[in-house]
Amino acid sequence: MSAAALTVDGVWKYYGDFPALRNISFQVGEGECLALLGRNGAGKTTLLRILAGLSRPAKGRILISGADARAPETRRKIGVLGHGIAVYEELSAFENLHLFANLYGIRDPARAAMEWLERTGLERVRDGLVREFSRGMRQRLAVARAFIHNPALLLLDEPFTALDDRAIAVLQGLLRSARAEGRTIVMSTHQLREALELATRCVLINRGKVGYDGERTPEMLEDPSWLYRNYGEG
């Protein structure tokens, strides 16, 4: 088997003496779309933060295309869309994208910024300050920010919550083309149906442990709560 896009190998994370993640292991193959499911406080966000390089596991390793998650080369391959939209209010849409294009070392940051403004339908407000944007516009800008460096692995934390219809449409379109281009997607979500439609695999986390790890089956789509009923904490 070729190197998996993402390997989570025996990961533990503690808050003091309390283990928030308890020996989490799974692999995601290239081009797969993984839905990370679990109740609030089960450890989804903690795990995603570790995958995104925002925090280090206490034990275990994270390998992204075979390399350490904190290596700069690895981080260039990851696109993160977290709870916050992570764009600056006092900067314009263009400046925001230009900033991140620079941080990611993109060769022509201005062109990349323009391209993504167009792809998210923001080219007309390129010089408007984010402060003046509507919620939907901000969210589309956030999506553009996460995609600007063409990441091979997308990490999305609750991507569909709080998005407006147009932003959801933009995001779903981007995610579909990302799937078509063979990118790997990992997303945590409450919205079972939207997530499961895209997903090829599911990992369910119960109290910091993997409760289910397998293919997304058609019955999950028909009955989204099937997974929780059969594999949720009893």
Binding site: A52, L54, A86, Y88, F100, G105
Partner: peptide, 13 residues
């Protein structure tokens, strides 16, 4: 504001 620090830290910076 908007969790910008997370985006900076998860970038290759």
């Amino acid at each position: 504001v908007n969790d910008c620090l997370d985006a900076l830290v998860s970038s290759p910076t």
